[in-house]
């Protein structure tokens, strides 16, 4: 018995999502009285991170073509690692890769899958995992009855704990077969910071009155090291690119801080952001529904508030350095 965690390096590094999943896996292994192994599908220069969060063994996949993303190949690699490690729980991040591979692995292994878990399982009476449902408006407590279990962990829902260990590294050569899907090209979005992994997000909506008024939003975001996002109407009318749209039908994000400017807070928008740890709302309308979901609010005109905020942030930064 062991716990296996899937990781896939991003630009040669173990990603934040993968580190969270690895930390979760080692906590879960401790809970079950066993150890956690990390499967590393691709080259990473910082695999010691995995040891530091409690992983005892790393299986470094050396099969040719493993870093070319294909769910059939990666699912085979995971299955072989499961057999080798006699893993009974397999952990993924519920990110772009986990959503693509975890269902394949679960179907193959006849394993119950909890997708979007937010905490460690309750093992006092069975195996019950809490997961986000209704687009972040509620949680479901899911009992998993199969012998082998698959969990995908919702990003930014589990605090990484560095225990300071080191992991042994073993080269691993699973039979992965041919790719059914061939990667032709990777296009990076123009945004410097990935919205789904950003800790801080500055977002704006129709209250900005036109695409030419985004200068202050971008300036504040750049100063804070935040990603920019927008509401659906603004993406639909072409003021902002679609990849910035957060909400029920766009991206769901869970940053530590979400600052919403000129967004009223329709229920569909809230569904994409209500997993944020802290929400700040800036709106001219004191009755805007978003204030009910906010931790901090400013009732005021964005065109007057934003320049003041930018100045205030510069001062804050200067006095805190």
């Amino acid at each position: 018995m062991s716990v296996l965690v899937y990781t896939e390096p991003h630009h040669g590094k173990i990603s934040k999502n993968a580190t969270e999943a690895a930390s979760y896996a080692s906590k879960l292994a401790a809970l079950l009285g066993t150890t956690a192994t990390a499967l590393v599908c691709g080259e990473a220069s910082d695999t010691e991170t995995l040891g530091q969060v409690g992983i005892s063994k790393i299986l470094q996949v050396a099969s040719e073509g493993i870093s070319q993303f294909d769910t059939q190949k990666l699912s085979k690699a995971v299955q072989e690692a499961v057999r080798k490690e006699m893993a009974t729980v397999i952990v993924f991040s519920h990110d772009f890769s986990g959503k693509a591979i975890a269902p394949r692995v679960a179907a193959k292994l006849q394993a119950g899958l909890v997708a979007g878990a937010v905490s460690l399982p309750d093992t006092s009476n069975g195996f019950i995992v809490k997961k986000a449902v209704f687009s972040g408006k509620a949680f479901a407590h899911v009992s998993v009855t199969s012998e082998v279990k698959v969990i995908s962990l919702l990003p930014n829902s589990f605090s990484v704990e560095k225990t300071g260990g080191t992991a042994s590294i073993e080269s691993f050569l699973p039979e992965i077969g041919k790719a059914g899907v061939v990667v032709k090209e990777i296009r990076k979005e123009s945004t410097k910071l990935s919205l789904t992994e950003a800790d801080l997000v500055v977002s704006a909506g129709r209250g900005m009155k036109g695409p030419e008024n985004w200068g202050n939003i971008e300036e504040l975001a750049t100063l804070m090291g935040a990603a920019t996002a927008c509401s659906r109407p603004v993406a639909d009318i072409g003021w902002r690119p679609h990849h910035e749209h957060v909400g029920q039908t766009g991206l769901a994000i869970r940053p530590n801080l979400y600052i919403a400017v000129g967004i009223s807070g329709a229920i569909q928008h809230l569904a994409g952001v209500n997993g944020s740890k802290v929400i700040v709302v800036i709106n001219t309308d004191a009755e805007a529904p978003f204030f009910k979901a906010a931790d901090y609010g400013i009732v005021g005109d964005a065109f007057q508030v934003l320049p003041k905020l930018i100045e205030a942030y510069k001062q804050f930064k200067a006095s805190n350095n």
């Binding site: 972040g136 509620a138 009992s143 998993v144 009855t145 700040v280 009910k292 906010a294 400013i298």
Partner: peptide
Amino acid sequence: LTEIVAYSLLPEKAGCKFIDAENPGEL
């Protein structure tokens, strides 16, 4: 292989703390 045994709602927000628009730096 899986079954939802219970649901729970998000914890309520403690309420929104308002900051003066004239002096937003307090944020």
